[in-house]
Simulated scan of single mutants.
Amino acid sequence: MITQWSEEDNCFLVGFPDFLGQRRRTHGDTYEAVVANGIEALESLIIAYEATGELLPESTVCNAA
């Protein structure tokens, strides 16, 4: 889960780069809200993958300064 502030949207955005098509999945006005929304979105993605029998993508390691 990658979270970042968007000046354009005036909110935090969260995305899941390991899941195709999930560059920007959800948002929140505060960091706490976007993390909670991100967790909920990730849980929904996992449920959807399991329902269709798809394998979850391999996670990549991101190093940030």
Results as ranks from 00 to 15, higher is better:
1 M>S: 12
1 M>G: 12
1 M>P: 13
1 M>F: 12
3 T>C: 06
4 Q>G: 02
4 Q>M: 03
4 Q>T: 09
5 W>G: 08
5 W>Y: 10
5 W>L: 06
5 W>Q: 11
6 S>D: 11
7 E>G: 05
8 E>F: 07
8 E>N: 09
8 E>A: 08
9 D>F: 09
9 D>V: 09
9 D>Y: 04
9 D>S: 12
9 D>G: 03
11 C>R: 15
12 F>G: 10
13 L>T: 13
13 L>W: 02
14 V>L: 15
15 G>N: 08
15 G>R: 04
16 F>V: 05
16 F>H: 03
16 F>P: 03
17 P>H: 08
18 D>Q: 13
19 F>G: 08
19 F>A: 10
19 F>P: 03
21 G>M: 07
21 G>D: 15
22 Q>V: 05
22 Q>N: 13
22 Q>H: 10
23 R>P: 02
24 R>Y: 15
24 R>N: 10
24 R>K: 05
24 R>Q: 15
25 R>K: 10
25 R>G: 00
26 T>Y: 04
26 T>M: 04
26 T>K: 01
26 T>F: 02
27 H>G: 00
27 H>M: 03
27 H>E: 11
27 H>I: 02
27 H>V: 06
27 H>T: 03
28 G>C: 04
28 G>R: 12
28 G>L: 14
28 G>P: 06
29 D>M: 14
29 D>S: 06
29 D>N: 09
30 T>M: 11
30 T>F: 14
30 T>R: 09
30 T>P: 11
31 Y>W: 08
31 Y>P: 00
31 Y>D: 02
32 E>H: 10
32 E>D: 13
33 A>C: 05
33 A>V: 15
33 A>L: 10
33 A>R: 12
34 V>N: 10
34 V>T: 06
35 V>W: 01
35 V>G: 01
36 A>T: 10
36 A>N: 05
37 N>F: 04
38 G>N: 02
38 G>W: 02
39 I>L: 05
39 I>K: 13
39 I>Y: 01
40 E>D: 12
40 E>T: 07
40 E>Q: 13
42 L>E: 15
42 L>Q: 03
42 L>T: 01
43 E>Q: 13
43 E>G: 05
43 E>F: 04
43 E>D: 15
44 S>L: 12
44 S>V: 00
44 S>M: 14
44 S>C: 06
45 L>I: 10
45 L>G: 07
46 I>A: 11
46 I>L: 07
46 I>W: 06
46 I>R: 13
46 I>C: 00
47 I>C: 01
47 I>P: 00
47 I>F: 10
48 A>S: 05
48 A>P: 00
49 Y>F: 15
49 Y>T: 01
50 E>A: 07
50 E>G: 00
50 E>Y: 01
51 A>G: 04
51 A>M: 05
52 T>E: 15
53 G>H: 02
53 G>L: 00
53 G>F: 01
53 G>E: 02
54 E>Q: 13
54 E>I: 00
54 E>R: 11
54 E>W: 01
55 L>M: 05
55 L>K: 11
56 L>F: 03
56 L>D: 04
57 P>F: 09
57 P>N: 03
58 E>Q: 11
58 E>W: 01
58 E>G: 08
58 E>C: 02
59 S>Q: 11
59 S>K: 09
60 T>Y: 08
61 V>T: 15
61 V>P: 02
61 V>K: 12
61 V>F: 14
62 C>T: 05
62 C>A: 12
62 C>S: 06
63 N>T: 13
63 N>A: 07
64 A>L: 14
64 A>T: 04
64 A>M: 03
65 A>H: 14
